[in-house]
Simulated assay, not measured.
Amino acid sequence: MEKIDDDLLIEAYIKAVELNLERDFISILEQELKRREIVITHNLKPETVY
């Protein structure tokens, strides 16, 4: 994950949520967002914080 830039990580996360991909994959992306201290304020789903 360290090799991809922040913009690509954010784009991957948003697309994964939109496509309703596996929860485990989304969780990995969320963990990396947290590690990088990136907060996504755009609510993709009512329960989505990141």
Score class of each variant (00 low, 15 high):
V17A: 05
I38T: 02
K3N: 15
K15Q: 15
R35N: 07
R35V: 06
L8D: 08
K15P: 03
N20V: 02
V17Q: 03
F25P: 04
L33Y: 04
Q31V: 04
E30K: 04
I28A: 08
I26W: 00
E2N: 15
D5C: 14
L9K: 03
L9R: 01
E11D: 10
M1D: 06
I28N: 04
A16I: 01
N20Q: 15
L8V: 12
A12S: 13
L21Q: 13
Q31L: 08
E37D: 15
R23F: 06
V17M: 01
L29D: 02
E37L: 13
M1C: 08
E11K: 13
L9G: 04
I14Y: 00
D5M: 07
I40M: 06
I28K: 09
A16L: 06
I26F: 00
E18Q: 15
A12L: 14
A16S: 09
R35T: 06
L33K: 00
L19E: 12
V17N: 01
Y13M: 00
I28L: 10
L19I: 09
D7L: 14
K34R: 15
L19Y: 11
A16V: 02
Q31I: 06
A16D: 03
M1S: 09
N20F: 12
N20K: 11
D7F: 15
L33S: 01
D24S: 13
L9F: 01
A16C: 06
S27T: 11
R23T: 11
E2P: 10
N20R: 10
V17R: 03
R36V: 06
D7N: 15
K34Q: 13
